[in-house]
Write a protein that binds this DNA or RNA. Structure first.
Lengths: 205, 205
DNA sequence: CTTGCATTTGACCATTTAGTAAACAATTCT
DNA sequence: AGAATTGTTTACTAAATGGTCAAATGCAAG
């Protein structure tokens, strides 16, 4: 009952776009309102603060985009190494796509915002820790499966996942800093090398 | 002739501390003035803007701390693998030290600020690219030497250095996000593993 | 010791920003 | 239709922030 609105979602999308392109600190509530065509009165009708909106926006991004994508990439229908290889290739393709759309290599929103906001805005820091942890579990599980299947040498999956994610996120960050996707060109090969496997050749289209 | 002052340096140090602990966007000129006990009038006597100060502060950090430290760590008197191992161990020790001093795992200032500021404040972004590039050259050179000395398998040193740095910086970032040095516990072992070598055992004191 | 320069100070202004309030508009349920 | 509920708008306030200026203050060399 009552009036219906997509204002809440427009705000979350605008906030995410702006914060990802610039940074949390560089974006004001007015910026978000302008981009989403929502008036400030409505902003405060939906959210308590910028931090509150950011937390909601990031959880929204996770549940509507990241999680479904991760579930597809890490589908048990693929072999463990295929899952990982797919993940790395998607990461590269995504950045190329973003560069074309926005002119910028944006890297990983969770990581960028996480680094910026660990200690300020406790709820936001907590959310980032949560989401980064979720992502790691996908890698960890695939590595565990790969070891069990004898596809890679035995190792501590938790430790290896941490490392693997560090490399992927580290490369994404460097690509963002340099605004250059070339850095990521052989992310798949390098990441697969880290776990002691070869990247799966894909035919050039 | 005229009056002498350490105001400029006090400003740079305060700015660096604050920005590293929080973030560039979260720190105001007033904050920096308070911390450094320099009045705003003097701030604008020394610097044009916050970005201007940040650029100076980061270059200052590089030339007074980072470069000397890197030169010592990557001294040609050590074998290439010893240099790298030393670099990784120092990185870990430093974060433990910072955690004790500030209660926070701060990660790498160049990388954190770099991610936040790539596209805003062009001069600052440029400076970060510059410094990150300098750091990479130390790794690259050590890897090249290690290959030449037959200490590790042949590889593309530039690519390997990028990767290695990605892993180190990626782990540092995760440590910052989680505010936990445990993530870095076996950074040396993992990083040495990446280049196909073993970390050098050090006696526990 | 005084002159010239380098710094300091504090008061000040303009703008941006977060946040509020109350009237208004649209939708649905009864 | 008319409540009741949900969302929208506008105009407003208070505080924070960036930025300026002219006068005052120390230092150091001649």
């Amino acid at each position: 009952m009552g009036r219906v609105s997509d204002g809440r979602e427009r705000l979350m999308n605008a906030a995410l776009d702006l914060i990802w392109e610039e940074s949390y600190g560089a974006v004001t509530i007015d910026d978000i309102c302008n981009r989403s065509k929502v008036k400030k009165g409505s902003f405060y009708y939906f959210f308590e603060s910028k931090a509150d909106l950011a937390v909601a926006a990031l959880e929204h991004l996770w549940s509507t985009h990241t999680k479904p994508l991760m579930d597809e990439i890490f589908s048990p229908l693929l072999s463990p190494l295929e899952r990982l290889d797919k993940a790395f290739k998607r990461a590269y393709d995504r950045q190329v796509e973003l560069k074309q759309e926005t002119g910028k290599v944006l890297g990983c929103p969770y990581f960028c915002i996480g680094c910026e906001m660990t200690d300020q805005e406790p709820r936001l820091g907590e959310k980032m820790r949560e989401i980064v942890g979720r992502k790691r579990r996908y890698y960890e599980s695939a590595i565990r499966d790969a070891v069990a299947a004898g596809e890679i040498a035995p190792c501590d999956p938790a430790e290896k996942a941490l490392c693997l994610m560090a490399m992927v996120e580290g490369l994404l960050s460097q690509a963002r800093i340099l605004n250059d996707t070339a850095v990521l060109k052989n992310l798949p090969a390098m990441a697969m090398g880290l776990i002691g496997a070869k990247s799966i050749a894909t035919p050039t289209v």
